[in-house]
Design a protein around this nucleic acid. Structure first.
Lengths: 216, 216
DNA sequence: GCGGCGCAATAAATATATTTAATGCGCCTA
DNA sequence: TAGGCGCATTAAATATATTTATTGCGCCGC
């Protein structure tokens, strides 16, 4: 079960948004989407139901496909849900975390901070940073050992990456390094098996991401 | 945003399962599903992607549509997720609950217990019981005031009703009355604004439902 | 001149036809 | 007789054609 996250049409749609071929808030005809995503109408429409269920589009008779534009409520509920899932996942992760994991994850963070500082180009550091973020946050969610929670979380994170489109300026080296430093604070508390401290640090991090997402 | 819960094809599919026209674990051809659900192939396939994303079916080349049969892991993860969401919703609900709500909800429970005892026929009491359950549990989830959590919860509950199909004998008057009594214990704690007591009672209830779902 | 009704245009929704792919059976060969 | 290759069958996947529905514009009537 992948929660529909790997549906080819959904992936193509998200990619088109991320690389600017589609814009948040835009309305496009189904025919235009077919061309843009290089797929035929039938498989496209099968994906549109998924995107609509996720709240990412609305299919409107005669009007076409209206791509969502995240309002304050949407951003808020996405972050609230994320914080809630990760915080509880983290609580469950603490008793099973190993010193080795904390150690190697912390080292990976120190290395990537240096890497981001040096290349200083979002197009280059984006990919390794994303991989590290997924390993970091994914570890907490994995502690639920619950495929349905994992599927929901992956859909949430897909939305999180779309929310960055609101304010692309914020996706820069300074903010990325700040994020990695916040991760390190979680790791510091994890090293001591300090549950409440780790959860506090995680909440500060998620709220930091929210703030940086919305602040110009 | 309704999370795809109201998609006509999805509704028709769930209804077909609930009234026995389809069975858990069965594999059916898409053509057969078209006939059974009285819809054409195109809209059916648009719904199949939703059902597959929910883990309720697998569409297999050449084989047809394989309807899931809930294994222990699936049941466990569904109940775990539900308990987790409701417990946290309940915590947030306590500070805003009114005496009037507790009072009227408790009365509704006492009335329905008497009603179930008298009619003693699942086909008759199922509907009002379901409405009361939704009002009761929905109040907790509503306390999040988060449309994405609400959408996820509704999908979870849709699955919960399907899980009853594993053991239809368990859907009887005795078990229903037991469920309503467990609700009343939550309400007792709520009346005192006893957060931990209410959460404990809710967890006992969810675990009771799980036990009754699996026990013959 | 203003208001309403109807028609035409457009695009979504659905039904159908075609293509693709997978499986199993049978035949041929070693 | 056994093993493998190929063809035929079946059903999913996709592409296309048709139908339905909505919107806007224009014409007619009041």
């Amino acid at each position: 079960m992948d929660g529909g996250i790997n549906n080819p049409g959904v992936v193509a749609f998200i990619d088109a948004l991320l690389d600017g071929r589609l814009r948040l808030g835009q309305t496009v005809k189904q025919d235009e989407l077919c061309e843009l995503l290089e797929m035929s109408l039938s498989p496209l429409r099968e994906s549109l139901t998924l995107l609509e269920a996720e709240g990412l589009i609305q299919v409107r008779k005669r009007m076409g496909v209206a791509i969502f534009y995240p309002d304050v409520r949407f951003v808020g509920s996405t972050f609230q849900f994320r914080e809630f899932l990760e915080a509880e996942g983290l609580r469950r992760f603490v008793p099973r975390v190993t010193d080795e994991w904390v150690q190697s994850t912390a080292e990976a963070h120190l290395e990537i901070i240096e890497y981001v500082r040096q290349v200083n180009d979002q197009r280059i550091f984006a990919k390794p940073v994303k991989a590290l973020e997924q390993a970091f946050h994914g570890a907490f969610i994995g502690a639920f050992d619950n495929e349905q929670i994992t599927a929901n979380y992956q859909r949430l994170m897909q939305k999180m990456y779309l929310l960055r489109l609101i304010n692309l300026d914020a996706v820069n080296a300074v903010n990325t390094i700040q994020s990695m430093r916040e991760h390190l604070q979680v790791l510091d508390a994890l090293k001591e098996r300090n549950v409440d401290g780790a959860v506090d640090a995680l909440q500060r991090h998620v709220r930091g991401v929210l703030h940086r997402t919305l602040t110009r």
